[in-house]
Amino acid sequence: MSTSDSPRLARAERREQILATATPIFARAGLAGTSLDDIAAAAGVSRMILYRHFESKDDLYRAALQRAAAHLAEAVGDELTEGSVQEMARWAAADPGAFRLLFHQAAREPRFRSEIDELRAGMAEEVRRNLAEVVNDPLWATWAAQLCLTVTVEAIMTWLDLGAPDPVGAAARIDRAAKAVLSSATE
């Protein structure tokens, strides 16, 4: 489809379409490896249309990160609980580009690293608060929360890299790995 054949969409719909198109491209190639021309061509729009919605490539990247973080929050809920690991795995299976962008690619981008570090710190803090009831030592609760998040994210990433085999069984296995970390903190 040429850019002139692209259907007219409402502003919010076009913005969402561009973000949905840009997310897996950024996740695959990174910020430096992606051009606005790549995104415009994939979205079937002109660069001018991109600039109507985003001031710069950095602005588009930041919006893609914010969208991915919002979708993650919708998937796992406001509070990280026992079921959150499985919900995170399901979300990653449904939107692997967004998961990779948040937890792999953005961490490599110096201009956006602090935003991802803040997201991960908030998630780890939520887990730590939940662990405070079962882990008496605050340092071990912090250790377990950070390690649990790292194990979960890396297990999901590796699973995606392997082609996301057996989605139902994978979520249960990833959940067991996270619970093993938590169990080690309560001993």
Rank of each mutant, 00 (worst) to 15 (best):
1 M>K: 09
2 S>N: 15
2 S>E: 15
2 S>R: 15
16 E>T: 14
18 I>R: 10
20 A>H: 15
25 I>H: 07
29 A>E: 14
29 A>K: 14
29 A>G: 13
31 L>F: 10
35 S>K: 10
36 L>D: 02
38 D>M: 07
40 A>G: 09
40 A>R: 04
41 A>I: 11
43 A>G: 06
43 A>C: 08
48 M>A: 15
51 Y>G: 01
54 F>N: 00
56 S>F: 01
57 K>A: 01
58 D>N: 13
59 D>W: 01
60 L>Q: 04
60 L>V: 03
62 R>Q: 08
63 A>Y: 03
64 A>R: 02
66 Q>F: 09
67 R>V: 03
69 A>V: 02
71 H>M: 09
71 H>E: 12
73 A>L: 10
73 A>E: 13
74 E>W: 09
77 G>Q: 08
78 D>A: 15
80 L>C: 08
80 L>E: 05
81 T>K: 07
81 T>F: 02
82 E>N: 06
83 G>A: 07
83 G>F: 03
84 S>W: 03
87 E>L: 09
89 A>Q: 06
92 A>M: 02
92 A>K: 02
97 G>D: 13
97 G>C: 11
98 A>P: 06
101 L>A: 02
101 L>F: 04
102 L>Y: 07
105 Q>D: 10
106 A>I: 04
106 A>K: 09
108 R>C: 02
111 R>P: 05
113 R>D: 02
114 S>Y: 04
117 D>H: 05
118 E>F: 02
125 E>G: 12
128 R>E: 13
129 R>L: 10
131 L>R: 05
133 E>K: 06
136 N>A: 14
138 P>G: 03
141 A>P: 00
141 A>W: 08
141 A>F: 10
142 T>L: 14
142 T>V: 14
143 W>K: 08
144 A>P: 02
145 A>T: 00
146 Q>A: 03
147 L>C: 12
147 L>N: 12
148 C>H: 05
149 L>N: 01
149 L>M: 06
150 T>E: 15
151 V>H: 05
151 V>S: 05
152 T>A: 14
155 A>C: 10
156 I>N: 00
158 T>P: 04
161 D>E: 12
163 G>W: 11
165 P>W: 08
165 P>G: 05
165 P>S: 05
166 D>K: 07
170 A>Y: 00
173 R>E: 01
174 I>Q: 01
174 I>G: 01
174 I>C: 03
176 R>P: 00
176 R>L: 06
177 A>R: 05
181 V>F: 07
181 V>G: 06
182 L>K: 04
182 L>N: 01
183 S>A: 08
186 T>P: 10
187 E>T: 11
